[in-house]
């Protein structure tokens, strides 16, 4: 939970090895191998239906691999018993596509809920922390609002405030730019980078927003929906320069060859 963790550039944080993902007998992706280093902003990209969101569900431990493993800090999530896995999942912050705020709770209560569950802090301290988290995402003063009373962009930022409630060491984002105007989207990108730097967190982003991918990505994988495996890996800018896979080139050049 500590934010003061020393960041070592070559330190592997998430290691995915020989991962096959499947729904029943339908294999979504197979033979995935990649490493997310500590402090990375790691982008998962690919064409529609390739299994980006499914991969995210595997990384955060919501879905068990059909084969292979996902190791966080050297520990494979699915080798742990259920309690230990839940404890490990608590160190993750996940921002869902639409924010996924609990609609019956105010924004402050949304953030206070995990804090109340997993810490021994007093009510006043929790309220203060909730207020701090909302300030961090630029929503100071919206504590008593319900999710239905704020805009989509604000809901996304409030979702981010909830994702960082427990000071996570890894932040996952599912399509952070989806449904946002370019200005809000760019601000969210800045916020992601700022939080990564100041929290010392590792960031994993599912995205197909090119501007955002190039602005924040330090490393990436590309999943191919037809070949059902990853076809490229590396920093997005390097892929743009040097990748020889036609589909990746077309993707990164917005359809232009």
């Amino acid at each position: 939970m500590s934010m003061a963790a020393h960041i070592d550039a070559d330190d592997a944080h998430i290691v995915v090895s020989d991962l096959d993902m499947a729904y029943g007998s339908f294999v979504v992706q197979r033979d995935l191998n990649f490493t997310v280093r500590r402090g990375d902003v790691f982008i998962i990209m690919g064409d529609s239906g390739c299994g980006k969101s499914t991969l995210l569900r595997h990384l955060v431990g919501l879905k068990a691999p059909a084969r292979g493993s996902v190791a966080i800090n050297g520990e494979s999530l699915w080798d742990l018993d259920e309690d230990a896995r839940e404890a490990a999942m608590r160190r993750f912050g996940l921002l869902y596509q639409s924010g996924a705020l609990w609609s019956s709770l105010t924004l402050a209560e949304n953030i206070a809920l995990p804090l109340g569950e997993y810490t021994d802090l007093s009510k006043a301290e929790i309220a203060e922390l909730a207020s701090l988290k909302l300030s961090l995402v630029g929503l100071a003063g919206f504590e008593e609002f319900y999710p239905s009373e704020i805009s989509g962009g604000m809901a996304k930022r409030a979702g981010l405030a909830r994702a960082i409630a427990l000071d996570p060491e890894i932040l996952f984002f599912d399509e952070p730019s989806a449904g946002l105007d370019p200005i809000s989207s760019a601000r969210l990108d800045e916020l992601i980078l700022e939080l990564r730097d100041s929290l010392g967190a590792t960031v994993v982003v599912v995205s197909h927003e090119l501007a955002s991918i190039f602005a924040i990505g330090t490393n990436s994988v590309f999943l191919d929906a037809e070949k059902r495996t990853m076809v490229a890996e590396g920093p997005p800018k390097d892929l743009l320069e040097a990748c020889t896979v036609p589909k990746v080139r077309t993707f990164l050049r917005r359809g232009a060859e």
Binding site: A4, E144, F145, E149, S198
Partner: peptide
């Protein structure tokens, strides 16, 4: 202060508190 602490404090102040929020008070 450590750099991360100072940056987060600055970030929390970057957008001033909205007082005219109307509902929700």
């Amino acid at each position: 202060l450590p750099e991360g602490v100072a940056r987060l404090l600055a970030l929390a102040e970057a957008v001033p508190r909205r007082e005219d929020t109307g509902t929700g008070g």
